[in-house]
């Protein structure tokens, strides 16, 4: 193994450059806990097609330049929510961002366009783009994100009108990618805040007519680390790759608490 090359001097010539590709400088916030004391930026010049996704760029780097690059991805099609990361400073799924949408209007002084990729904030970075999701899921579990119903099991399905279903339709779309929670300035400062994603998933059951645990969940979210911490900065709504109106959902939970009515 060669010694660590200086920044920006990675040999990327092995990456296949298909016809019509342009060179893009991918600036990655790398961190290896066994070698580095803190994260540092490294640049890679990667050939990319305008139709490539940022995930393709990362895989080209991992497969042809540095196999130690660590990041999560499962389905790679915007469904599983594994590859949330900060792309050009904004939380996005790497599998949903196309290169052509990142290219500027024109090249600046002949230099290749730069795409910065960093891990999502507010969760401990384990390695490179790979963060410890446990605090995120701990908050998720704490709001009891499952159907709570008392009495005898019905013998047929639990029916619900379309209007009742409509009330929480938006929040059923959550894929738990943590893009919203890790874009929330309150969550960055105070990790014990439930965070937008947990509130969205509480909302999904609080406003479900078949569920009987609304009171429990509202009690949990009425606490010091609950919905009242939200300062409505709308970062979460901007970050959500599923287009969920996250801030609106949080406000609906606040309203339910305020007027004691769901």
């Amino acid at each position: 193994m060669t010694a660590t090359v200086s920044e920006g001097a990675h040999d990327t010539s092995q990456i296949p450059a298909p016809e019509g590709s342009v060179t893009i400088t991918v600036k990655l916030l790398r961190f290896n806990p066994e070698q580095d004391s803190e994260p540092h930026w490294e640049s890679y010049d990667v050939p990319a097609l305008p139709t490539d996704r940022v995930l393709n760029l990362l895989f080209n780097i991992k497969n042809y330049v540095d196999g130690t690059l660590a990041f999560r991805r499962s389905c790679a099609h915007g469904i599983c929510g594994s590859d949330a990361m900060q792309i050009n400073g904004i939380n996005r799924l790497a599998c949903k961002v196309l290169v052509k949408d990142l290219l500027g209007k024109k090249d600046t002084a002949g230099k290749p366009p730069v795409v910065t990729v960093a891990p999502i904030k507010g969760l401990p970075t384990m390695k490179d783009l790979y963060v410890d999701m446990e605090p995120f899921f701990e908050a998720y579990r704490a709001v009891k994100p499952y159907l709570i119903a008392y009495g005898n099991e019905p013998t047929r399905e639990r029916v619900q009108s379309q209007a009742d279903r409509e009330r929480f339709d938006d929040t059923t779309k959550c894929i738990l990618c943590a893009a919203c929670t890790s874009s929330c300035p309150v969550y960055w400062a105070d990790g014990s805040y439930f965070g937008p994603a947990a509130i969205v998933n509480a909302h999904r059951f609080i406003f479900d007519s078949r569920d009987e645990g609304s009171e429990e969940r509202l009690d949990i979210l009425n606490d010091a680390e609950g919905v009242w911490r939200c300062r409505t900065t709308f970062n979460c709504t901007d970050a959500c790759p599923r287009g969920i109106q996250v801030t609106k959902a949080i406000q609906e939970v606040k309203r339910a608490l305020l007027f004691k009515r769901v």
């Binding site: 009690d219 949990i220 009425n222 606490d223 010091a224 009242w228 305020l258």
Partner: peptide
């Protein structure tokens, strides 16, 4: 949860 409405009222 502390079942207090303090944060709500504030």
């Amino acid at each position: 949860a502390r079942r207090s409405n303090f944060e709500l009222y504030s």
